Simulated assay, not measured.
Amino acid sequence: MVKTFERIIVKIIVIQFLFLIGTQLFFHQLSIFPELKIITKYEGVNKNNFADFLETFNGK
């Protein structure tokens, strides 16, 4: 019974990982939502460049 439970948990982990990778590719690589890139620039996730932050903050 324990081995069955462990196999189910491992399958769930693998499926979650595949969904995570697929979602990352969908949103970031294919540029489905261009607003998402602006938000990441505003939050400072992309680079630590203060000029880009000001450009994004000013709406350029």
Rank of each mutant, 00 (worst) to 15 (best):
K3H: 06
K3M: 08
K3T: 02
T4L: 12
T4S: 09
T4A: 14
F5N: 03
F5C: 02
E6L: 14
R7D: 11
I8T: 06
I8C: 01
I8Y: 02
I8V: 13
V10Y: 14
V10L: 15
K11Y: 11
I12D: 05
I12C: 08
I13D: 04
V14Q: 11
V14K: 08
I15C: 04
Q16T: 11
F17T: 08
F17N: 03
L18P: 00
L18Q: 09
F19S: 04
F19P: 00
L20P: 00
L20Y: 04
I21L: 15
I21W: 07
I21D: 03
I21A: 14
G22F: 10
G22V: 00
G22D: 05
G22E: 02
G22K: 03
T23H: 08
Q24C: 06
Q24F: 09
L25K: 11
F26Y: 14
F26S: 03
H28T: 08
Q29I: 07
S31K: 12
S31V: 06
S31F: 08
I32Q: 01
I32L: 10
F33V: 12
F33Y: 14
P34W: 09
E35N: 14
L36A: 05
K37C: 00
I38W: 06
I38D: 13
I38M: 08
I38V: 12
T40I: 00
T40Q: 07
T40L: 04
T40E: 13
Y42H: 07
Y42E: 01
Y42F: 12
Y42D: 04
E43L: 14
E43M: 12
G44R: 05
V45Q: 05
V45S: 07
N46Q: 14
N46W: 11
K47N: 12
N48P: 05
N48L: 11
N48E: 08
N49T: 07
N49S: 09
F50N: 10
F50P: 08
D52G: 01
D52N: 13
D52M: 02
F53M: 06
E55A: 11
T56P: 01
T56F: 01
T56V: 14
T56G: 04
F57C: 01
F57T: 06
N58G: 01
N58T: 08
G59I: 00
K60T: 00
K60M: 00
K60P: 00
